[in-house]
Simulated scan of single mutants.
Amino acid sequence: MKADLGDLSAFVTVARAGGFREGARLSGGSASGLSEAIRRLETRLGVRLLHRTTRSVALTEAGARLLERLGPALGEVEASLDVLNGFRDRPAGTLRLNVPISAARLVLPAIVPAFLAAYPDIVLDVVAEDGFVDVLAAGCDAGIRYDERLEQDMIAVPIGPRRQRYAAAAAPAYLDRRGRPDHPRDLLGHDCLRGRFASGAMTEWEFEKDGETVRVDPTGPLVVRVGAATDLAVDAAIGGTGIIMLFEDWLRPHLDSGALEPVLQSWWPAFSGPFLYYPGRRHLPSPLRAFVDFIAARRD
Results as ranks from 00 to 15, higher is better:
S35I: 06
R21I: 09
P253H: 08
A31Q: 03
V127Q: 14
Y174K: 14
A104L: 11
E206R: 15
W205V: 02
P158Q: 13
A103I: 03
A169M: 04
L193N: 03
A104T: 14
V234R: 07
D231A: 12
S35C: 15
V12M: 01
F271C: 09
V12D: 05
D125W: 03
D235G: 13
T13K: 05
P158F: 09
V99M: 10
M154V: 07
F115W: 10
G75V: 00
F271Y: 13
L106R: 02
L50F: 12
T53G: 11
R44S: 15
R196C: 12
G131L: 06
T241P: 01
A270Q: 08
T241R: 09
F291H: 07
I159C: 06
M154I: 06
P287D: 11
G23E: 04
A142T: 15
D235Q: 14
E148D: 09
A233V: 06
F87P: 04
P221S: 15
R105L: 15
H190W: 12
V12E: 05
K2Q: 09
R16S: 13
I38A: 01
I295H: 13
G280E: 06
R105K: 15
E212A: 15
S35A: 15
L136W: 07
L49N: 02
D217G: 10
A103W: 03
E212V: 14
L193R: 01
A137W: 03
V226Q: 07
P218Y: 01
L175G: 06
A64I: 08
L175W: 03
L193H: 00
E68L: 03
R163T: 14
A156C: 03
L70E: 12
A64R: 13
V292Y: 13
R299P: 00
Q164S: 05
S272M: 06
R165Y: 03
A118P: 03
E61W: 04
G160D: 09
A201I: 10
M1F: 13
R163N: 10
G273R: 04
S30Q: 01
S56C: 04
G160C: 08
R21Y: 08
L59M: 01
D176M: 10
A138Y: 09
D235H: 13
A138P: 05
I101Y: 05
A237V: 09
F197W: 07
W268D: 00
L95P: 11
R162V: 10
T94I: 10
D231Q: 10
A128W: 12
I155D: 14
R96S: 12
V234K: 05
M154H: 07
A259D: 14
L222Q: 11
R162M: 04
I38S: 00
G227R: 06
V224M: 01
P91M: 08
A17K: 00
R282W: 06
L136D: 14
A117V: 08
R165H: 05
D231F: 11
F275K: 09
Y174F: 07
D217F: 12
G240C: 03
D134N: 11
T94S: 10
T60R: 00
G211C: 05
E129N: 15
P287T: 11
